[in-house]
Structure formats: structure tokens, C-alpha cells
Nucleic acid binder design. Structure first.
Ligand SMILES: [Mn+2]
Ligand SMILES: [Mn+2]
Ligand SMILES: [Mn+2]
Ligand SMILES: [Mn+2]
Lengths: 225, 225
DNA sequence: AGCAAAGTTTAGACCAGACTAAATTTTAAT
DNA sequence: ATTAAAATTTAGTCTGGTCTAAACTTTGCT
């Protein structure tokens, strides 16, 4: 330790959550800057500055101030591992232990950091190596790839058009319960009956009923393209 | 915060592990003192001093220097909760996910701190509210009681006597694999054929074969009384 | 170009939980 | 009753991760 290189630290749960969040923000085409990352991580910007510096020293991210943070290959690998854990756990809790889709996110948020690779493998095998989690979110493969199926949001479906729901990108438990109550779940066939102007609600028919959904909520609901 | 009472801290995983360890040591009739607790927790004695002080301030333990630490009612409640988590998880991994009994301890050691009460309940229900874990260790009940069945160790069984194994109080993976290989697992019927003098080995017949077990190992193997 | 707002970093503090090294206290053995 | 050994605590340091408050930089608007 005489010459320096005290760098290092470890890949802690907090580090994993930062990497995961950076990955998901970039994938959603959001800019990953100090303030936006701080908001997502529910910490203060100065905390992000410190953490991003540490991540950069670990070789997990690169950072250009006022421009953004992005993951290195190593950082992305870890992020995808954690996301794989998260989504496998969510699905396992629903499929095997009878959880509802609104209950699993919180649980997976902590479990994702502590399951061994062996347990991950057993869970994946038990589920038959599934492709998507209960919300329709794709599950990263073991080889570190994340298939990106062509989708568009419910708010982008033309009026009077039918579509098949594939994914709900919202983790708020109350909204998920609400949507489940309406039958708005992955796999459902719906028809967009109207899209109100001025960022107004999107009306969808599910079965015989028509429901008006807030535009921002509709944007988190993805359909097959 | 003007008048003091900064006491408090939180029940972190580390705190849970200290409480669990104190509980298990006392239950095994070991003295819980600074040095012995440090050995069990794999930390230095000075770390124990600091933690015990914090636990005492939280009202979870009482400490008389040079005499010992013991849990308060509150501390014991938490310890039993964690032990219940641990043993339920171990059994779940074996029964549902095909783990072997030597693989589950490490996994449970971290999972015990992060499963929700809801997940605990689902696991318990899925297993039919079991009484013992894969090693025969009793699982604390929801009401915070831990049944203590009458047992004695294999080393205390008279020679030429048969007995039914109920528990193996050893968590070393290699020894567990060794014992499983011999058929020395909870439920097995064995006969003690000889107990060598001078703390020598205990010979047991399992099926048609006789195996000589180190006395200390035999002492961790409990049989029905 | 000038300037305010927004974004970012620095400086300094805190907490949890470990460590080492040194002091202190108790116990046990002569 | 001394004294050596063992047990315990204190003092001070470290790391990871957060915070507030203050500085500094960049952007964008007039
Ligand atoms: Mn997480
Ligand atoms: Mn999900
Ligand atoms: Mn533990
Ligand atoms: Mn066990």
C-alpha cells in the first residue's frame, strides 16, 4: 500500500442498487445526471457525487460532469445480474408462493442482493427459465443479455385499435392493485377507444368495460407492436 | 436532542446476529462473555464491548462485566424471530428447491435478515408449519416459544443400545456431507456399539455398517431420550 | 454580454461497525 | 499478599454511506 491504489471498495448492496438504477434509467432513455440519479436513489445530490466517484474508481461507471454517467462493461454486467435476480425473485414469489404482483417489488428489492448464484439457478430452473417477470419486464439471460421486444405504450396506440398488453412499467403497489382490478395485466387483450386531447386520459376497453386511464399511467403500460 | 437520549440505533442484521448468537450460546449452557461472544461472532473483543453497550442501551441485553450477557424479553423475542427465519429458510431450501443440508446454512445466514413477515408466513404455510429444520433443530413458533425435546448426545448413549437420531448440531458443511454419507441423519436408527475410553471415538452401527465417530462430533449428534 | 437559476462538487459532520494498541480490572496461582 | 495471566474496556482510527451548508460551474435567458 505504499504507492497508492487504495481504491477498491466492494460491490455492496448499495453499489448494486446504484448500478441497477443507472442501467434502468439509461434503458428508459433518461439522462443519468447527479440530480436525476439522486432523485431515483432517494438520496441527496452530494451523496451521488461521492458514490459516482467511488464507482468510477472501481471501474464500474464513467462520468462526465453536466453530461451524464454511464456504465462500463463491468458495471453493466453487475447491473444485469441484479436485475435478473430481482425479476426471477418477483416471479418466484408470485408463481410459487402466491404473492400478488403488487407485493413483490419491495421483497425483491432486498432479496436481489443476497441470494447466491446457486439459489438463483435453482429458482430459474424451478420456473422453467422464464423470459418475463410478473409485470412483463424481461428477465436478463445468464449470458448477460436482455432481450428488447418491440413495444409501444398504450398512449401511442391509435384510437379504435386492439392490442395485447405485455408489460406494466410501474412499481407502485396501489396502482398495480388498481390495474389488476381493471383487468389491465400482461396478456390481456384491450382496445383503445379514445385518447383525450391535451394530455388527457386514455380510454381502454377490457372485456365489456371501458376505463379511462391517466395519460402518464397509460404511458407506463406497454403493448405488443 | 438537547437533553440526551441519543440512544436508539436500529435492529440491523448485525444486531440480529449478535442477539441470535447470545441466545444460542445461552441455550447451549455456554457462558456469554466478551471473549467467547467475540470468538463466535468472529470479531475482536473490543468490538463486542462496543456492541454490547449499544444493545444494552437499546434494552435488548443486560451485561455484568466478568460475569456475562443475557437477553431481555425484547432481545429474546428478536433472537427467536431470527432463528425461526433461519430454520424455516433452511428447510424450504431443502424441501422445495433441492438443496442439500450442508448447503443451506450460509444461504439462510443472510436471508434470515431480509425476509418479510409475509414471506415468512408463506414459507411456513407452504411447508405445513414444520417443527424442525433439516438438521433437526426445532423451529421457534410464531408465539415466540421454542420447544425443547428431551435428547441426549450419541456420546451419552450406553453401549449396545439403539437410538433414533433427531438432531445434528453442527453446521460445518464438510462434516455434514460426511455424516450424510454415513447415513447419520435425523430420523435414522442407530446402535452405539462401543465408546472408547479417554475421550475416544464412539462407534455406531447404521444399517449394516459400523462407523467410528470422533467423540466431539458424537457429542453434537442428539438422539431421542 | 451579463446574470440568475440550475446543476455539481467540496468541506465537514455523523452513524454503524469494525480494527489496533494501550490501559484497566478481575481472577487465579504462587 | 503479591503478582502474572486473562478478561475487559478505552482511545483512537478506518470504511461505507449518508447528510447539510457552502462554494463553484455551467446553462440559458434577457
Ligand atoms: Mn435493491
Ligand atoms: Mn418487475
Ligand atoms: Mn445472519
Ligand atoms: Mn439448521
Amino acid at each position: 500500500m505504499t504507492t497508492a491504489e487504495n481504491l477498491a471498495q466492494a460491490v455492496t448492496p448499495v453499489v448494486e442498487d446504484y448500478l441497477k438504477t443507472i442501467y434502468l434509467m439509461r434503458r428508459a432513455h433518461e439522462q443519468v445526471k447527479t440530480v436525476s440519479l439522486a432523485a431515483r436513489m432517494k438520496v441527496k445530490p452530494s451523496s451521488v457525487t461521492a458514490m459516482v466517484k467511488a464507482l468510477a474508481e472501481m471501474g464500474l461507471v464513467e462520468h462526465e460532469p453536466y453530461y451524464g454517467v454511464h456504465l462500463t462493461a463491468n458495471g453493466e454486467r453487475i447491473a444485469l445480474e441484479v436485475i435478473r435476480h430481482h425479476r426471477l425473485i418477483e416471479l418466484y414469489l408470485v408463481e410459487v408462493l402466491g404473492f400478488t404482483w403488487d407485493e413483490v417489488h419491495e421483497e425483491a428489492e432486498v432479496l436481489e442482493h443476497v441470494i447466491s448464484e446457486k439459489l438463483e439457478a435453482r429458482i430459474a430452473a424451478h420456473l422453467g427459465h422464464p423470459a418475463v417477470d410478473p409485470h412483463g419486464d424481461p428477465i436478463p439471460k445468464l449470458d448477460g443479455t436482455l432481450p428488447d421486444t418491440a413495444t409501444r405504450s398504450l398512449a401511442d396506440v391509435p384510437e379504435r385499435t386492439s392490442a395485447r398488453l405485455v408489460r406494466v412499467c410501474d412499481q407502485n403497489a396501489e396502482r398495480l392493485r388498481y390495474l389488476a382490478g381493471l383487468g389491465v395485466v400482461p396478456g390481456a387483450e384491450v382496445m383503445v377507444t379514445a385518447i383525450a386531447p391535451f394530455e388527457g386520459p386514455v380510454s381502454v376497453r377490457v372485456g365489456k368495460k371501458i376505463h379511462a386511464l391517466d395519460r402518464r399511467l397509460a404511458q407506463t403500460i406497454l403493448v405488443e407492436d
